[in-house]
Design a binder for these strands. Structure first.
Lengths: 215, 215
DNA sequence: TCAAAAGTGTTTCGGATACACCCATGC
DNA sequence: GCATGGGTGTATCCGAAACACTTTTGA
């Protein structure tokens, strides 16, 4: 009923960051430096400081450990089983985050296909599983894909995002009809040139999280 | 990186319990006994003990404070703003729960219409708002209504649940068609007699949480 | 006999799905 | 000239929504 004492669990945050690259969902992992899990891969995260909010802690630890900052972040679930951390009682508030893919990462940081994760420290496998379920569900009723894409992109690229995350192919004609009918996109200048016919570029009319109705 | 120390936030749980009664959503509140909020209403909850899971803490505190036990419970969201509790840093894992309505409550415990709550302690108003949003969303893709109903009930009573929670009327014929087509219900013995034509009784084929697709 | 809830079918509309062909480019 | 992805239109199906009258009971 009053402030903390030494009997309290420690409070931590963990962040499951996803991107889509090479037509596959990828998860951001860091190598554990110390303790019982030294050498294993784990989600970025750590202890919450006394005067910061949970989300701020998540952003700080993510930036420090991986250099990633300024991305979409939302609270996922709180994992608090008494034995989840062999070092002592730690209650961890997990966040899930999305980012457009970018280049290489620092040492001891890696993008790993979400379908083939190595053994992870703590209960982070369960955290990733929970985050993936949330991600798939949320794509169906929000415009969150925009967080995975650069400012302009082709409809083919957009469709690849949905296919990578939902794990199945979509009909191109129906997809274009549906997406364009939502009015979320505007034509961007220029075209994407590749080894084949150039594709029109599009951009999101608004780059902020919104409820919508798709798929 | 190791176990807790005195700098850690306290860890608590709060439980937002809902029922439907008198065609309205009701929230279970307890009166705060001590501290800065003494006399105010609040959600049941309190500190997590060193060796119990978060869910177990929620069930324990709910039973001790209100006598309610053995109900549907799910984790909702974790509230951790540094100033949410004037007594010190407390990170609170909120749960949301559903129960069929039953008789009177102990002293200093009350069911209160969710639409007209009194001023609540801490950030519990935000907790209730979050829980209501979750409840409304979840009714749309699960069979969780069963938690609000007695073992047998009429289709009219079932429809009242949906109407109370969603806050709008539904067409009776379409509702019956849809609900019966899902195959979740079986006829129960007997009829409900009232001041008017008797109604057939139904029961849920399975009383456990399931994903489905309704409304 | 009246008030109040129970019970029942049909029509309409819109969104989802399935499906095939031509186009523009780089190699 | 060919391989590769870009771009477009139509027919069908299914579930959702709208909608009115008869039935049974207790008072």
């Amino acid at each position: 009923v009053s402030a903390a004492d030494a009997g309290d669990p420690a409070v931590a945050v963990d962040v499951a960051v996803f991107t889509v690259h090479a037509r596959a969902l990828q998860t951001l992992l860091v190598r554990v430096q110390r303790g019982a899990f030294a050498g294993r891969w784990a989600l970025p995260g750590g202890r919450v400081q006394a005067d910061e909010t949970l989300e701020r802690a998540a952003r700080r630890l993510l930036a420090v450990q991986t250099g990633v900052r300024g991305i979409y972040l939302e609270q996922l679930y709180t994992f608090g089983h008494p034995e989840r951390d062999p070092h002592g009682r730690v209650v961890s508030v997990a966040y899930f985050a999305l980012i457009a893919h970018r280049g290489p990462t620092p040492a001891d940081v890696a993008w790993c296909p979400a379908a083939r994760l190595p053994p992870l420290a703590y209960d982070h496998r369960a955290v990733v599983r929970t985050a993936l379920a949330r991600l798939r569900a949320k794509l169906g009723y929000t415009n969150l894909v925009y967080t995975l894409l650069p400012p302009s992109f082709t409809l083919g690229e957009l469709q690849e995002m949905y296919e990578a995350i939902r794990g199945r192919r979509l009909d191109r004609r129906n997809f274009r009809k549906k997406i364009l009918s939502l009015g979320l996109l505007v034509r961007a200048a220029g075209v994407r040139r590749g080894p084949h016919r150039p594709a029109a570029l599009y951009a999101f009319r608004r780059r902020r999280p919104m409820m919508i109705d798709i798929l």
